[in-house]
Amino acid sequence: MNDEATIEPFEAFYARSLDPVFRAVLLTTRHAERAEDAVHEAFGRALERWDSVGRHPNPLAWTTRVALNVHASGWRVWRHEQAEPPEVAVSDELPIDPFLLRAVWRLPRRQRQVVALRVLADMSAGQTAEALGISEGAVGAHLHRALEKLRENLAATDYAEAQG
């Protein structure tokens, strides 16, 4: 836990955490705009309480959880979930990327949530379990199943075929 002397400036926390939190919330919500709204609001709440949030064992986990709660506090309009991951052109894209992004995007909800928090937000199994209201064992099981499913799905794609 951070103490008074080592509390990280909010600006530094914001700079290093904004994107990881956004990615986790994006994958959970499957909606870029709503994810961005929720993330900004969560960081706003973190800023307002930075004296205490800055001392939290994991402010990134705190903010991610708040962002997900903010998102959950609006009713989900499933029809508006985006069926495909947003297309963002990057110069260093690997051939596997489009297949991998799509496969992760299409994971069942709970598996997707666990990948978002454990992998993209680097939250511990305990923090993920707490955020999702499930046991740590269940977090491990969902992550295992998610990775298995991704391997299966990737093996069935043109990418795998091209790899021979």
């Binding site: 994107d19 990615r23 994006l26 963002v88 991998l100 992760v104 992998v119 993209l120």
Partner: peptide, 13 residues
């Protein structure tokens, strides 16, 4: 690989 691929997504500060 998942982390790297999702690295393309960035929020607007």
């Amino acid at each position: 690989e998942i982390k790297r691929a999702f690295g393309r997504y960035r929020a607007t500060p």
